[in-house]
Amino acid sequence: MAKSYQSAEKILRELGENATKAAKDALADGAEIVMQEARNRCPVYKGNDHRVVKGALRDSIHTVKQKGGAKYKIIADATSHDGIFYGKLVEFSPAINKPFMYPAMDARRDEVRNKIIDAVREALRRK
């Protein structure tokens, strides 16, 4: 009796490990999808202000893995020549009114969620 209990425990642990790894891998893929969407939506400065490098905000968008891959941040951390981080200004300023990060996340939310669900289901089926 004890042997079958240990076997069941081992199987459940392996299922959990496989599902967790599949979810983290799918989340990493999802973060890349949202990052690319944000880059596509990011406005490129067309003005004449010499402090701003054209395309720098778009080019600064990247992902940062946290908590061992259980969480990702997508960051736009461009700075002007005088040291001002302006990603948040472009995203949230009513004067500029050109959000790109939140619309990217909203546009791809269902796709990323489905990618994670499908990956976990497949990992559980394989075992």
Rank of each mutant, 00 (worst) to 15 (best):
K98W: 00
N18S: 13
A78C: 04
R125L: 12
G68Q: 05
D25P: 00
S7W: 00
L27V: 01
N18I: 00
A76V: 12
I74C: 08
K98V: 01
G16S: 12
R39A: 05
Q6T: 08
K46C: 00
H81R: 14
V112P: 09
H81G: 08
I84D: 04
I74G: 06
G68R: 02
D29Y: 02
G68S: 02
N40H: 04
A2P: 05
L57Y: 05
C42D: 09
R113N: 09
M101T: 03
F100A: 07
L12T: 12
L57M: 14
E17S: 08
A28T: 04
E17W: 01
E111Y: 04
S80L: 04
N97L: 07
P43Q: 05
A119G: 05
A23G: 15
V53E: 15
A76T: 11
R58A: 11
V90Y: 06
I61D: 06
I75W: 07
R58P: 05
S80A: 14
D77T: 00
A31N: 04
I11N: 10
K127R: 14
P103T: 09
G87I: 04
Y72I: 00
T20I: 02
N114H: 10
A56C: 08
S80I: 05
A31W: 00
E91K: 10
A22K: 09
L12Q: 12
A22M: 11
F100K: 01
E32V: 06
A123V: 04
F92D: 13
A26W: 02
K88A: 15
M105N: 02
N48R: 15
A76C: 11
Y86G: 03
G87L: 07
A107Y: 10
Y45R: 08
L124K: 04
A123L: 11
E17C: 00
K46V: 03
K10C: 00
